[in-house]
């Protein structure tokens, strides 16, 4: 049995729920091309007015960091607590800055 999805590209779908907000990843789908992916995304992911704008991106075009790399990727930040506002202890009367 031929599975149609194997012949179709995988797309990641991003939806902007409201003007002014970021597009947020909501899921993925198979489609022939960008136009079709956009239509499918509309039919599938915005049936209840979830969005005002959709982005579709080929999954193969996404370059992602690897879970296993997290240590070397993010670790160095652990010894830089001074990047956080809470690191600086200020007298109470001016502590709201």
């Amino acid at each position: 049995m031929s599975v149609i999805t194997e012949k179709l590209e995988l797309f990641e779908v991003f939806i902007r729920s409201k003007r002014g907000l970021d597009h947020k990843h909501v899921g993925s789908l198979h489609a022939e091309d960008h136009e079709q992916a956009l239509e499918y995304a509309r039919d599938c992911y915005t049936r209840r007015s979830e969005g005002v704008s959709i982005w579709v991106v080929k999954s193969s075009d996404i370059c992602a960091s690897q879970e296993d790399d997290a240590d070397s990727f993010y670790d160095p930040n652990d010894d830089k607590p001074y990047r956080h506002a809470t690191y600086y202890v200020l007298p109470d009367p001016v502590n709201n800055m």
Binding site: Y82, R83, H84, A85, Y87, Y88, V89, L90, M97
Partner: peptide
């Protein structure tokens, strides 16, 4: 940015 002001004040 909030750390910027706080480090300066400190």
């Amino acid at each position: 940015e909030s750390f910027h002001q706080r480090q300066g004040y400190e």
